[in-house]
Design a protein around this nucleic acid. Structure first.
Lengths: 374, 374
DNA sequence: CTGAAAGCGCTAACAA
DNA sequence: TTGTTAGCGCTTTCAG
């Protein structure tokens, strides 16, 4: 423990409650040690050019008096690298943060960035004052020197461009058509959509419905693109009525599924909402008088390996998104510590398979569900 | 979306990739608008004294060009209040953060501090470089202007004194004997220990063992104090062998329970570890050839209302810690927004009762369990 | 090895 | 209503 107010070898007001508000400056320490501010600065920053004795004295004073450099002042000379930002490029209603994901992210960040004392700064609501607010404001404000962009990017996103141009280390959890060089770690959603559609086409289906999540966001575009590619290859005409936007809301999911399945010519469904919500799909089917696995084939997307989202599904697509993110974060840590300098590009391929377990994974809980409903 | 590089009414280099690294300054904006820096500052800070036209022009430029004030520079003039810090005064091994608690805390902070754009800065490992490191360093570094001290305080803590003296809004989740005025929201652990011991004494027990968690920390002291008070009142002599320190580790918990119950004169146990871990208590009893509820009476502490930690327990003590914290955080938000100025003092009383449900609550998962075992 | 001076971006105090 | 000046705490530059 530092013992403020008690420093041997010189005097200062020794009452614990006498510590002034904003805190000690480098000059205070310099005065106590009888040296210049620059010398203290050298000690603080582990720079050469200070005698052993002075260094020891200054270090002792710093520790005893509880001095810490003012990061604000420091950040005016060079960007601060001991803090990582986490920001969400889409409002939580549009892409709810799951509890599981948050816990995972937290633990990863702890391991990679905080073990030796780094800070993590969350920008939980960059859209507060202005819908169009820049989600990287913490970076421009120099709150942190690197950032994790957690969530889907809007197709017309410009903030990522600016982050990229700024040269700060960053990692987005998705690609962006308009920025091929984006630093990202993600899954190939286009391929996932292609695989899903191809699988169903090969099974003989021609009228394949798709729950298209993330409309207006890059992952939504990628889904559509993969779907279209598979249709084109099989020379099946595209019917836009078979692809409908969905949100993560269970009621909406069920209702869209219902409407899609009302069309009796539809014999297959790609559930690529990412909601991992079996109940809603069943409910939607039920309302349309359909039974998954009997009336129609389903391919469901999941973020969990070797687990079923919907037991009746014909096949599952596993999206190793978390695995990709893990590798990306590792590389981001390298970048922050200047062991690399270039944008990260980690893109994992999805896998189509028949689940080997009977256990159905539960729908993930959104972190802010209670709050959103208030 | 801001459209960097495209500002009508004046020219600037219009390529999106031309944005300089550290960002725009107030002077850049001033130059663009043809005004002084101070005028821009006024607009940014919603101060009076700028004509409507100029204000509008400047506001437009700011938004189009994507200017954000440098928080570092700003924090040199006045403490920054748009960021709350969260810090942990004890190493995670000594007081593991549960997943549930983190999720709850996150949601509360979001609701109270981030809804309109505030940041949250986590200091997950203040003890990185030096065991004795000051857990409030983020405050001295002016990273944030208010902080939440999440976890038990060491009995010899001095950092809380310094935070108190600094005048920053803060909330500790526990009291501190050496600082009666501490700003805190917590549960009366002394009372909980007193109630536990008294209940067992009234049932006729004389040799009451206690799993004493948080040794060296304030909550540990409070536990012992309440226990002693109850013994004293009943004129039962204190046997120090009946009170043993425990950690949150399941194996350790079982082994301490085992050793305590080996003494056949011990007829009761206060499980106040706070681990909510029924399995370990049973395992410890089993090893000693004892059965809770038959051989000996147990009082178990729980943080969840109206739920059993251990079904065989004679009684439960409910510690409304989360409820207290919720109120405390609410008051902290008031303090941050300058609707109050004094330290917070929220101390909820524990309740002794017999659980009305048969469901046993599961042991909470530590957030970093995986990581700690690496 | 050490220190003085300038300046980072911003705002309080003061002038105009 | 607007602008000028000084200085916050630090580090860079340059001179001892």
């Amino acid at each position: 423990m530092p013992h403020p107010g008690k420093v041997s070898g010189y005097t200062m007001s020794s009452d614990i409650s006498d510590l002034r508000k904003p805190g000690l400056t480098i000059h205070d320490v310099a005065k106590m040690a009888g040296v210049s501010a620059k010398t203290v600065s050298r000690v603080v920053n582990d720079e050469a050019g200070v005698s052993h004795e002075k260094r020891a004295l200054i270090a002792r004073i710093i520790s005893e008096v509880g001095y810490y450099p003012h990061t604000g002042a420091r950040s005016m000379r060079k960007p601060c690298r001991d803090s990582v930002g986490v920001t969400f490029p889409a409002p939580v209603e549009q892409s709810p943060l799951s509890q599981q994901f948050l816990l995972w992210l937290f633990a990863e960040i702890y391991r990679l960035f905080c073990k030796d004392g780094g800070f993590v700064c969350f920008d939980l609501n960059p859209f507060a004052k202005n819908r169009d607010e820049d989600y990287a404001r913490g970076l421009w404000q120099q709150r942190y020197g690197a950032c994790i962009v957690a969530g889907p990017l809007a197709v017309n996103d410009t903030t990522a461009h600016r982050i990229q141009a700024s040269g700060h280390p960053y990692l987005a959890m998705g690609r962006l058509d308009s920025l091929p060089d984006i630093s990202c770690a993600t899954v190939d959603y286009e391929e996932a959509a292609y695989l899903s559609a191809k699988y169903l086409i090969d099974k003989g289906h021609k009228r394949i419905a798709m729950l298209r999540a993330f409309e207006g966001y890059q992952p939504g575009v990628e889904r559509l693109r993969g779907y279209l590619r598979a249709l084109e290859e099989a020379e099946i005409p595209f019917d836009e009525n078979l692809v409908r936007p969905v949100t993560f809301d269970a009621l909406h999911l069920a209702s869209v599924t219902h409407r899609l399945l009302l069309d009796p010519t539809v014999t297959a469904l790609i559930e690529c909402s990412g909601s991992e919500d079996a109940a809603s799909v069943r409910e939607g089917a039920r309302r349309a008088g359909r039974v998954p696995g009997q009336d129609f084939d389903v391919v469901v997307w999941t973020y969990t390996d070797n687990a079923a989202v919907l037991n009746e599904a014909a096949a599952h697509i596993w999206l190793p998104a978390r695995e990709a993110a893990a590798e990306g974060l590792e590389l981001l840590a390298d970048w922050v510590q200047e062991r690399r300098t270039d944008p990260i590009k980690v893109i994992y391929r999805p896998t189509l398979y028949h689940p080997s377990t009977d256990r159905e994974i539960p729908k993930p809980k959104p972190l802010f569900d209670v709050l959103l409903n208030r």
